[in-house]
Computed example of a mutant assay.
Amino acid sequence: MEVTYGLMIAIGAITYYAWQRPEIHQKLMLNTHATFHQRQLERLITSGFVHNNGIHLFMNLFTLYFFGGAIEEIFNAYFGSSGNFLYVLLFLSAVAVANLPTLFKQKNNPNYNSLGASGGVSALVLAFILFDPLQELCLYGLLCLPGYILGALFIAYSIVMGKRGGDNINHDAHLFGALYGVVFVLILKPSTLETFISTLF
Rank of each mutant, 00 (worst) to 15 (best):
G119V: 04
L145T: 10
G120E: 09
Y65T: 10
S118R: 00
A127K: 02
N113V: 03
P146V: 02
A173V: 10
T199A: 07
V121A: 03
H171I: 06
L139H: 13
I169T: 15
F62Q: 14
L179G: 01
A13H: 05
N53R: 05
G166A: 01
Q20Y: 09
R21Y: 12
P110V: 02
N53W: 11
T102Y: 00
F131E: 06
F184V: 06
I14P: 10
V182D: 05
V185Q: 11
T46Q: 08
L179R: 03
L100F: 01
A152C: 10
I187N: 03
A156S: 08
N109K: 05
L179V: 11
L44Q: 09
H33K: 12
V125S: 00
G80A: 15
C144P: 05
G54N: 13
A34H: 06
Y180P: 08
G69L: 10
A178W: 06
L86G: 12
Y180T: 07
L86M: 12
L103G: 03
N52T: 14
T199D: 00
P190I: 13
I71W: 06
T195E: 12
I74C: 08
G162C: 07
L41E: 05
L134H: 02
E73L: 08
F128D: 06
L115N: 01
N109T: 07
F75N: 07
V185L: 15
I14H: 02
F196L: 07
L142E: 08
S82V: 01
N168F: 14
S47D: 04
L44N: 05
V125E: 09
P146D: 09
N53C: 05
H37L: 11
T102H: 00
L64I: 14
L7S: 04
S191A: 15
V125H: 01
A178F: 06
T4A: 09
G181Q: 07
I14D: 02
M1N: 10
S47K: 11
Y16F: 15
L175E: 02
N53E: 09
L28W: 11
N84R: 12
Y17I: 14
L92K: 03
F176K: 04
F154N: 01
V121C: 07
M59Y: 13
I71E: 11
E73M: 03
L179H: 04
L100P: 00
S191I: 08
P190Y: 13
S114N: 13
D132G: 00
C144V: 02
L175K: 11
R43E: 14
L179I: 12
A34C: 00
A96H: 00
F184G: 01
I155A: 07
A96C: 05
L92W: 01
V97A: 06
T32I: 04
H37W: 15
Y148P: 02
L64F: 15
L179C: 05
L200D: 04
H56P: 12
V185I: 13
Y157F: 13
L153C: 09
T15L: 05
D132L: 04
V182E: 07
N76H: 10
E23S: 13
V125A: 06
F62R: 13
